[in-house]
Amino acid sequence: MSGYLTGVLVVLAFNVIAAYAVYLPLAAGQLNLGIAGFMAIGAYGAAFLTNEYAWPLWAAVPVGAAAAGLTGILIGIPVLRTHGIYLAMATFALGQVISAIFLNLEVVGGAAGYPVTDYAGPYAVFAAAGGVVALMLLISRTRFQLYLTAVKSDPTVADLMGISVRGMQVAAFALGAAVAGFGGAFYAHHYNFVEAQHFSVLLSVYTVLYVLFGGTQTVWGPLVGAAFFTLVPELLRASNEWRYALFAVFIILFMAVRPQGLVTAALLRMFRRRTAEGEA
């Protein structure tokens, strides 16, 4: 595998992890625009443990993810009292605050960035992304996913059915934060450098676009959306002067025609039906 292809696939792996971190809160009807902040917590937390305390990578990464998840719980309880655009604005501000904290925290390099000693190779990153996809597929087959769908569809009815709406929202928010922290921890150890400027609001916005484009109705949507936004610009690289314009026009037209996203529940049902007919 060439270095260029490996680099593109590594970027794809990180985008897939980030997309699923956004997908989990969206599955409960929450738009989290602060996902980059939780990635920063995982990145700096795991890097600090491997740098300063010589922790092995396999131990530091889960702790970084857990720190992001715990932060998600502590922040999610008050923040999730808001809804709609107010929730989006609150998470947007949250991401900015977290990034600003690390930007001014001298113990991890401040604005100059933080070099990381341990290295996670490309195949470790691929395995991490594969593990996240497997986890999402597992969750999609549990009652937890059904409860999230119920909360998103109609919180009042879900509450009448005995589902703890706030509890499910906080759980989805915290689990998404933990997945983001997991990806951030691997990011720090693959590139061997962390800087707070990378975890900007643009990273959160791009990641939300992956999920909305791929679709939020099925667990495959974030994977397809992340792959599209990562690979198609590279395929258009030959027309370097126009590739971003062509890409933007296509996205606008596509979302106007298919606002529910690329992968929908109806599309998957049709695919399964045709597969079953073909086997018969």
Rank of each mutant, 00 (worst) to 15 (best):
P25V: 00
A28I: 06
I35P: 02
A36L: 11
M39C: 01
Y44N: 02
A46L: 13
A47S: 14
A47L: 12
T50G: 07
N51Q: 10
N51G: 08
N51V: 12
A54G: 09
W55F: 15
P56Y: 10
L57F: 11
A59L: 15
A60F: 00
V61I: 15
P62K: 14
G64T: 01
A65V: 02
A65M: 06
A68H: 01
G69T: 01
L70A: 14
T71N: 06
I75R: 01
G76T: 03
G76L: 01
L80W: 09
L80R: 11
R81Y: 13
G84E: 10
G84K: 02
Y86P: 05
L87A: 13
T91P: 13
V97H: 08
V97C: 08
V97E: 05
I98K: 06
I98M: 04
A100M: 05
A100V: 09
I101L: 09
F102N: 00
F102H: 03
N104S: 03
N104F: 07
V107S: 15
V108S: 06
G109R: 05
A111G: 13
A112W: 11
Y114N: 10
Y114H: 13
P115E: 09
P115W: 04
D118E: 13
Y119V: 07
Y119H: 13
G121T: 10
P122M: 02
P122H: 03
Y123K: 03
A124Q: 12
F126H: 11
F126I: 10
A128Y: 04
A128D: 03
A128C: 05
G131H: 10
G131F: 10
V133L: 09
A134F: 01
M136P: 04
M136N: 08
M136I: 15
I139R: 03
R141A: 04
R143I: 12
